[in-house]
Structure formats: C-alpha cells, structure tokens
C-alpha cells in the first residue's frame, strides 16, 4: 500500500532523468570523448578517480578550505547579523557596507586574495569568507528583525541575562534563518573554493580542474566536477537536512 505513493513520486523524475541520459549519449556519439564525453565515459573516468587513493587527499584539501571559510563566515556573519538586528546604531553604521560587500564582484575577491596572500591556504579561505559573509549577515539580520518581541519581553521581565537570552530565546527563533544561511553558505563556499583554488593554489580539486583544462580534457574536468558535487550534495542532504529535522522536532512533536 505504501509503495504506490513513493513510486508515483519518484517515477516522473526517474523517467526524465533516463531520457536525458539517452539524449546525452546520442549527442556524444558525434564528438571525440575528450571534448564531449558521454555518460559511459564520464562514469568510467569517475570510477578511475574514486579508485585512486590520491584523489581523497585532493578532496580533503579542498574540503578543509571550504569548512574553514564556511565556519568563519557563518560565525562572524551570524554575530554581525544579530548585532545589526538588535542595535539600531550598529545597523545604520554597517548597513551600506554590507551592501557594498554584496555587490562587489566575486571574482575580484579571488584575484585580490591571491595578490594579498599569495599561494597560501589563506587565499581561498579569505575569498570564501569575503563572499559568503554578507549573505549570512543579510539573512540573520532579517531573521533577528522577525523575532517575537513578546518573548524577548518575557525574558526581560524574568531577568534573564544575555547568555541565557541568547541560548533559549534568540538563537532558537533564529534557527530557520541559521539553517537557510548554512545551506546557502555551503553551496556558495564550495563553488568559490574551486575557483579560488584554480587561481591561487597548486592543490585541491580546483587545481585538478585547471590542470585538465590546460590539457583540454573535458572528460576529466567533468569527472572531477561531478564527483565533487556528489560529495557536497551528500553533506547537504545527509548532514544539514537531517540536523534540521531534529532541530525542528518540536514543531511536529505529539504527545504519546
């Protein structure tokens, strides 16, 4: 009985996916595999990447940069967004600066970071922070303004100190905004990381992409790109969505 709805939900997507693969395979027959690989060739190259232990070191390097940049941007962005939402003066002061940061071309940051920090670990991390930070600030700032004043007033009446207020009243109300920031930040971070690595450092997945680009090996570039995409989507789905479901359990919790 329960199989049916699942089948009817998955089936249309699976069919279009299969059709897409077929069309792709047919088109690829007209090209040399290194310029336009078909799905079979791509899968072959991906298996080669997955079966080479050195690949995991490369992915690990990129992941560590992503998480450093991502963590710094999330922490500073959340703190700044909270302060801006709670304090009128700070808001007025930083308002226009956040807009400047948001509007500045992302590629410029990648170049500037390399010029300032050279070919070091700091360059890609800084690039990520500079690009992701304003997005996080905007999101948390908006969330802070949407918080219920009544609950904050309740906390003040009972003389809750700042730390308690933050833990039990403010952060829980911000959770939906924190989660959406996390997901935006992660998807931005990993894409920026690859660009920054391609420009700036001689390691990581970005370096693999530029290496195969210079060799005009589209098949290898795609294989690396898709492989890494799978890793990041897995982190998003298995990590964040699972965590979000737990964090919002109180909304769906029913008495037993």
């Amino acid at each position: 009985m329960r199989i049916r709805p699942i089948v009817s939900r998955i089936l249309p997507g699976a069919v279009t996916f299969a059709i897409g693969i077929c069309v792709w395979q047919i088109i690829s027959l007209f090209f040399v595999p290194v310029y336009f690989p078909g799905p079979g060739v791509l899968a072959d190259r991906m298996i080669a990447i997955y079966s080479n232990p050195a690949s995991y070191v490369v992915v690990g390097e990129t992941l560590s940069r992503i998480f450093e940049g991502f963590a710094i941007a999330m922490l500073t962005g959340t703190a700044a967004g909270l302060l801006m939402g709670r304090n009128r003066e700070i808001e007025i002061f930083f308002d226009s600066w956040i807009m400047v940061l948001l509007s500045f071309p992302a590629v410029c940051w990648a170049f500037l970071s390399v010029l300032w920090f050279g070919l070091s670990q700091a360059a890609p991390v800084l690039t990520i922070v500079l690009i992701v930070f304003p997005f996080v600030v905007m999101n948390i700032w908006e969330g802070t303004k949407a918080m219920e004043k009544d609950l904050i007033e309740m906390g003040r009446v009972y003389k809750a100190d700042h730390a308690l207020m933050l833990r039990k009243v403010l952060i829980p109300q911000l959770m939906p905004y924190i989660f959406s920031s996390l997901r935006i930040a992660l998807s931005l971070s990993w894409k920026i990381a690859l660009v920054a690595e391609a420009f700036g450092v001689a390691s990581g997945v970005g370096q693999k992409l530029i290496y195969w680009f210079q060799d005009t090996r589209v098949d290898m570039m795609l294989a690396w790109g898709v492989s890494f995409m799978i890793v990041m989507v897995a982190i998003d789905v298995l990590g964040f969505r699972w965590w979000a479901r737990r964090a919002f359990a109180w909304r769906h919790h029913f008495a037993t």
Binding site: D150, L151, E153, M154, G155, V157, Y158, K159, A160, D161, L164, K168, V169, P172, M175, W250, R251
Partner: peptide, 25 residues
C-alpha cells in the same frame, strides 16, 4: 508575570519552560 498570551518558548518542553525562569532568577 502572567501575560495575556502564554508567551511560552515553544521549542522547549513544559519543564524546560519553567526551568528557563528558574535559571533566569
């Protein structure tokens, strides 16, 4: 203070809601 509306912290259990003010005080 009892407000017009309950003003409970919906993400905390009933017990944790009481503990919030006990900690605050």
């Amino acid at each position: 203070y009892v407000f017009q509306s309950p003003r409970l912290l919906n993400w905390l259990t009933v017990q944790q809601n009481l503990e919030f003010v006990l900690e605050a005080q």
